[in-house]
Design a binder for these strands. Structure first.
Lengths: 134, 134
DNA sequence: ACGTATTTGTACGTATGTATC
DNA sequence: AGATACATACGTACAAATACG
């Protein structure tokens, strides 16, 4: 299943193996991935490589990880926000503090909404927001 | 400078130490961070911790890393895109293929622009795009 | 043109801590 | 209490890209 000599790093091969059932819907949102030792033993690879693969998927926003394991990220309810001509929106990754403050998972960006005449931009979680023009 | 027993992980303490001169402007966009061994020796910590700190800053979009070292991410020219009522915009992290295709750095999200009546959404790099309402 | 030094990337191993069930 | 699972952190070794003399 995983071949060390192919030029493709082991951790990437594993990431692709985990990605497949998620993208085909065999592993649905909310469902758990296998535990790190499972992947280690099944493919005969080190924990480092397993964790690197999982970290990659996490920073892509595909999964979330807690002390109880990793799960496919669940879709959130989306609030639609109307954007007028007086408004400029950019996107970026949140700081760790913003993640904490707004309850944002790793791998989820934020909208930065700057309205004319307001000093402070509004920060909107990227997994719970959609923008619509005015 | 770095204290192992404080409850704050070593790699986070280092990330904060690197973040400071960037946020205060002492280390400007395009300028190089020190090499991994420099941080190891200066703070007496392992390469694992140094790399974890740098990976964290990279996935926040604060720095970029090549084989020649890490640098503070440089601002790109920003194209403004007008969003009408017929358009819905979300944001997410790009896949590895999209990063490749559009030349997007790690830690940089994309806008997903879905216009009414069009099947395929448009993908716009988050570091080169701003949205304006109509 | 070539080798050398520098720097990051990949991958292994081990140990201990901590949250959760 | 005990088992499970992830988090942190140390170490080592070799590979690969890049820059430089």
């Amino acid at each position: 299943m995983i071949n060390p000599g192919t030029g493709v790093p082991v951790y990437r091969q594993l990431a692709d193996l985990i990605r497949r059932p998620i993208e085909t819907g065999q592993l649905r949102p909310g469902q758990r991935l296998r535990a790190e030792p499972d992947y280690m033993h099944e493919y005969g690879i080190s924990r480092t490589s397993v964790r690197q693969a999982i970290a990659m998927l996490r920073s892509e926003g595909l999964i979330t990880t807690t002390r109880r394991g990793s799960r496919v990220r669940v879709e959130q309810d989306i609030a639609e926000v109307v954007i007028g001509t007086d408004t400029r929106v950019t996107t970026r990754m949140p700081t760790a503090e913003e993640r904490q403050m707004y309850g944002i998972a790793e791998g989820v960006p934020v909208f930065v909404v700057q309205r004319d005449g307001q000093d402070e931009p509004e920060i909107l979680p990227g997994d719970r927001t959609a923008l619509i023009g005015d």
